[in-house]
Design a protein around this nucleic acid. Structure first.
Lengths: 242, 242
DNA sequence: CATCTCCTATGTGTTTTGACATAGCGGCTC
DNA sequence: GAGCCGCTATGTCAAAACACATAGGAGATG
């Protein structure tokens, strides 16, 4: 189900900067494929040497690293419109893996076309760099959480952050966000054990700031949750979409 | 003490990719200033809206974020040749601060020249993007540490990482690396308390893998320390220098 | 040379987090 | 429907990390 960039429905969302026809045409000419993958598929492997650059068109994914003995750290979550694989496609090998959290669709920009992309349209190159910087900002925020927030604050901050990112994408319907994370994913993202995550979640829920069940997140008091988590960053919008 | 790029001594180090004359000339034309700052100076402020892009020419610095109540997380350390402020110069405001750890010198590339830089020389734009991606990779690695390594492993991994980065810059002399970090900096970078950092450091030292005193780090057994820390990444070299 | 500040060091007790064990629940397969 | 699997939940105990208190050393300052 190939989607040509000029008729991309994502591009019309308020989260994204509206681009001129010519620019979209160039992006379209760089796009080599439109993949559909099942939940759980790993589309960038640690150590992989020929990873492509992807734009997540639909669904959720995450980047992760792991230690030799299997301990895993989720670095960041990706939502529709996010670029995944910039590091992996620029370096000789990838330092991380990327896995689909739900069934996903990916737009593929071949790594070997990157330099030509930079030559052909500097505005797009600038946008790629911008998106790379935003990706780093997400990891920065996560590192602040894991390093300095307590367990409850971490969970609250993660939920706030995902909610604030999902909203301008139209993923929040009548106050409900479909959250495809298991408690294991939350634990892996926040540097907590599974058990502790479970207990902390239970405690937080009992305070009534949000409910989460069956993969449905409802935030009853976003202001209060943000305050508790000390999470005050808004997602950058409008942002470019490659 | 302005240093023109063509005669930049950093550029000759083995850590960096050698560039053609023309490219260096363009970089030089983008450089607007060469600053000298004292240790402790904050040259990018959180929330600052007009931060410039810097290349660290000499000395050490770090990026950090903090929570409302003063808890501080160091995101990454910068060594000579590292780009600092890409996010801050691309976004409307900075999400982090940057502080000099030693007396430092900075090459300044004004933020308003960024787009022109991309137009004028795509190769350099590509390199900027590459350096941005490398900067993210450093944060990724740090997040893995803070999220999944124990206190001892974190410290070991940090020392390994800094040592491996400092070596190709010629900062390791006869096995000794001058390390301008206090234990408070280490604690802030690794998500530990000062006291716990101190005690863990003492325990590690007593195993004899390294010595550290008076700001001088000697790693007696890099292989062994890397194994203990499960830190197996080498720094990317040669890398571009903007 | 007294004083101050910053950094390092160490003992004691508390809090947070993790490990292990066990159990329930819903979906799936055969 | 029996059995299995992935996810969630909860109790008990152990380990990791932190808070608070105290102290010593090195360098700056007056």
């Amino acid at each position: 189900m190939y989607v040509p960039c000029p008729s991309c429905p994502l591009r019309r969302k308020p989260a994204f900067r509206q681009k001129g026809e010519e620019e979209v045409a160039v992006i379209n000419s760089m796009k080599s494929d439109h993949l559909t993958l099942e939940a759980g598929s790993e589309f960038i492997h640690p150590e992989q040497s020929d990873a492509e650059l992807y734009t997540l068109f639909a669904g959720w994914a995450f980047r992760y690293k792991e230690l030799g003995d299997g301990r895993r750290q989720i670095l960041s979550f990706a939502l529709p419109g996010d670029l995944i694989g910039l590091q992996a496609s620029l370096f000789e090998k990838s330092f991380y893996g990327a896995i689909a959290l739900t069934d996903i669709q990916l737009c593929v920009i071949p790594r070997r076309r990157m330099l030509r992309l930079f030559e052909r349209m500097p505005e797009i190159a600038y946008d790629v760099t911008w998106l790379g910087a935003r990706s780093e900002a997400l990891v920065d925020e996560n590192l602040l959480s894991v390093g300095r927030r307590g367990a409850g604050e971490r969970i609250a901050a993660l939920l706030c952050s995902l909610y604030k990112r999902a909203e301008p994408l139209g993923l929040v319907k009548e106050g409900v966000l479909e959250l495809p994370l298991t408690q294991q994913h939350i634990a892996d993202a926040l540097g907590l054990s599974l058990v502790h995550t479970n207990k902390t979640l239970a405690k937080l829920r009992s305070q009534g700031l949000f409910t989460i069940s069956g993969g449905h997140l409802v935030i009853r008091n976003l202001r209060g949750l943000s305050r508790f988590a000390q999470h005050f960053e808004e997602d950058l919008a409008p942002r470019p979409l490659i």
